[in-house]
Amino acid sequence: MKKTHIIILIGIAGLIAGLISFSADFSTYDSIASAQKKQEKFVHIIAKLDKSQPVEYDPIKNPNYLIFHAVDSLGGKTKVIYHNSKPTDLEKSERLVLKGKMHQDYFECKDILLKCPSKYKDEKSTLEKNVNEQTESNSLNRP
């Protein structure tokens, strides 16, 4: 390693670091309650679909308009609007990572990451459920 190298290396690293710190607004993982405190700020919320409330989606009227309600583990609730098509696993998902901004009375979601049990083959509960479902039809034969 020569002096020139070191200088250039530091220069490039500095440039990159500068670029990042200058313009990257790293976001946060928040609960619904804490997100409501920082309105209009881009946050990540980890929540669940609130199944007690209806999911509104009518692709014939507008395929880019979905309304549902989310609830998080601390009990916070919010209405969510998502300007995109409805992720088809939504009802089945176990956990949602909602990326977007909190407004006065709703959360405007830009992106949803779904965590679905169907993908988690490795989880024992899923496997157990599957075995039981499969054999339910034979339950009468059980001694």
Partner: peptide, 14 residues
């Protein structure tokens, strides 16, 4: 950061 660190709004652009 005031919360667990997460990717910015425009992660691709970063």
């Amino acid at each position: 950061n005031g919360g667990q660190l997460a990717m910015p709004e425009n992660a691709e652009f970063l």
